[in-house]
Design a protein around this nucleic acid. Structure first.
Length: 467
RNA sequence: GGGGCCGUCGUCUAGCCUGGUCCAGGAUACCAGCCUGGGGCGCUGGCGGUCCCGGGUUCAAAUCCCGGCGGCCCCA
């Protein structure tokens, strides 16, 4: 493993593999296997977001993996945006199919034909759904484990509203929900409104959550889109208003990249000793390591049993394997457990335990009388640290050479922008890959001219290198 | 989109350039037995390989050539 700072890529691959989060050796490009240590975190992520969505009135559904080709082709911008990267099933039963099927790259074209059947009155609205599934996109760029795969896990919401105002309010609600969760997980992020040419195919407006990786690069972990009537019109999703008028519904969609979130967690919190999974996302808070010595083993075993029964039920794993304590320490840090409780003859003698916390890598000896309280307090502290670690710094650039200079340092840049794609392309070329990510959510109006070309600025935008 | 590196026991790798000494060597993991135990501990024995796949060159291919599949990196 290379140290994190020197060789991020090498470090990242090493942690994912040695920490047993995922396995890239499945043998199909861009598709990985989620191992138990990765999967428990994936499950936690799903649980958290699913319960957020349910609280906000979304109902869970499950649509088929395959979409009929005619439906897939109904919204023209959408098909243009995805046609190069969809998998198509064209053969089955030993012969070519008369009508091929698309494997979902996203599920608008699966949902909307059914929405047409389910929605008929303004009383049915808002209608909010979601599903937790894998989607498939034939990425031609180099794939990276969890960051860019041809199969990835996500949650997608698909929602119908009676009017634009309700739909936009829902988008705002999505932004707040995601923001609060990302902060809680300690993932630094920006919410940006994507440039018109960079929107989701078929969207009227796209808002993206760009996580900021330790390399200074940004990684889109979620997007929410206002779709207007772009999908409800071709799919004829109509309802009757109070005045008995026919009206196409307005819709939104939110995609939460669960695979990418796992990658971002490992990337953002890990260090040269391994991963660090935030307490609320780890299936277990930690492991208990008994340390035997000489002939005092019986004493230690009895004491460990006693301590274990005092720990919050189901939150700790008692590691009774034959490995040496050092190896257990090493593995627990690699896999990113928030806490570790070490118990040997000294602890047994003094009625204490030694608590090791993963974020600071500090030990503390605690009287067992205070154990539950100490664990609770430490976990609260760790969560607070995560929040404060998620702060980000944005550097303002006024002129072209400032953009060049800041980009050389891999910093996140904010600058006035003219809104032209040609200008964005030139920035990308001259800065070695800096992209116009879009306008910060709730950004103020720009004063003056585009920092790059000098023409009238239309908005302030974020510039960053994308992973 | 363009360029580069790589693929050998479960894992990591030596061997490849310069074909034969390799029915492939080591370490680690695993199994058995000991010894230990406060940061990957040590000893003895054992198990384990279609040298990624296909084709070609050759008396002879892990090694050279072509194609495919897969992994990784860099640039745009």
């Amino acid at each position: 493993m290379g140290p994190k700072k020197k060789s991020f890529s090498e470090w990242y691959d090493y942690i994912l593999k040695e920490g047993e989060f995922i396995d890239v050796r499945y043998g199909v490009k861009g598709m990985i296997v989620y191992r138990p240590r990765g999967m428990v975190i994936i499950s936690k992520l799903y649980q958290i977001f699913e319960s957020d969505l349910k609280e906000r009135g979304h109902q869970q559904v499950l649509f088929p993996l395959m979409i009929g080709l005619p439906n897939f082709k109904k919204e023209s911008e959408h098909i243009k945006g995805f046609e190069e990267e969809v998998f198509i099933v064209s053969r089955a039963g030993g012969k070519d199919l008369d009508e091929p099927m698309v494997i979902r790259p996203t599920s608008e074209t699966a949902f909307y034909p059914m929405f047409k059947l389910w929605i008929s009155s303004y009383r049915d609205l808002p209608y909010k759904t979601f599903q937790s599934v894998a989607v498939y996109r034939y990425e031609t760029k180099a794939t990276r484990p969890l960051f860019r795969g041809r199969e990835f896990l996500w949650i997608e919401t698909h929602n119908l509203f009676a009017n634009e105002v309700d739909a936009m309010n829902h988008v705002k609600d999505d932004i707040e929900m995601m923001g609060s969760r990302l902060s809680e997980m300690g993932i630094p992020y920006l919410v940006v409104k994507r440039e018109p040419y960079d929107r989701f195919p078929g969207a009227v407006q796209s808002f993206a959550y760009d996580a900021i990786l330790p390399t200074g690069e940004v990684l889109q972990v979620a997007t929410t889109h206002y779709l207007g009537q772009n999908f409800t019109k071709p799919f004829e999703v109509e309802y009757l208003t109070e005045n008995s008028d026919k009206q196409h519904a307005f819709s939104t969609t939110l995609g939460i990249g669960i695979s990418r979130l796992l990658g971002a967690l490992v990337a953002c919190h890990g260090d040269d000793n391994g991963a660090y999974i935030p307490p609320q996302l780890s299936d277990k808070l930690g492991i208990v390591v008994p340390i035997f010595s000489g002939n005092k083993n019986y004493e230690v075993i009895q004491y460990v049993k006693r301590v274990y029964s005092m720990l919050p039920a189901g939150q700790f794993l008692l590691d009774n394997s034959e490995l040496t304590p050092g190896e257990k320490y090493y593995m627990s840090e690699l896999k990113g457990y928030p806490l570790r409780i070490e118990i040997g003859s000294k602890e047994a003698r003094d009625n204490t335990v030694t608590i090791f916390r993963r974020d600071t890598r500090k030990r503390k000896v605690v009287d067992i009388g205070y154990l539950p309280k100490e664990i609770e307090g430490t976990v609260q502290e760790m969560k607070a640290n995560l929040r404060s670690n998620s702060k980000i710094i944005i550097h303002d650039a006024m002129k072209r050479d400032e953009i060049i200079e800041l980009s050389g340092k891999n910093l996140i840049i904010r600058a006035n922008f003219c809104g032209k794609k040609e200008c964005a392309d030139e920035i990308k070329e001259k800065t070695g890959g800096y992209e116009v990510r879009g306008e910060l959510y709730n950004e103020e109006q720009p004063q003056g001219t585009c920092a790059w070309c000098g023409n009238q600025a239309v908005r302030k935008v974020i510039l960053a290198r994308a992973y």
